[in-house]
Amino acid sequence: MLDIRWPIGLMFALVGAILIVYGLITGSDAGLYHRSLDININLVWGVVLVVFGGLMLLFAWRGQKTAAPK
């Protein structure tokens, strides 16, 4: 059976990466981030999503390794 951690990990890593790139491009645009209390929330939260997605992928990979010998 498909391990749900693969799609979850991939999706959040991908979305997180996109947010990071967008956050870096628009980082100098103070007007854009005024609404998020002058925090570059795309960059910050993109990093959180990439870390979360990466952990999910790591668990999925480890799960696959332990399941494989059977």
Binding site: I18, T26, R35, L37, I41, N42, W45, G46
Partner: peptide, 11 residues
């Protein structure tokens, strides 16, 4: 709407 810039809004 109040707090999310493009990107976060989509999420």
């Amino acid at each position: 709407k109040k707090y999310c810039p493009p990107g976060m809004l989509g999420l």
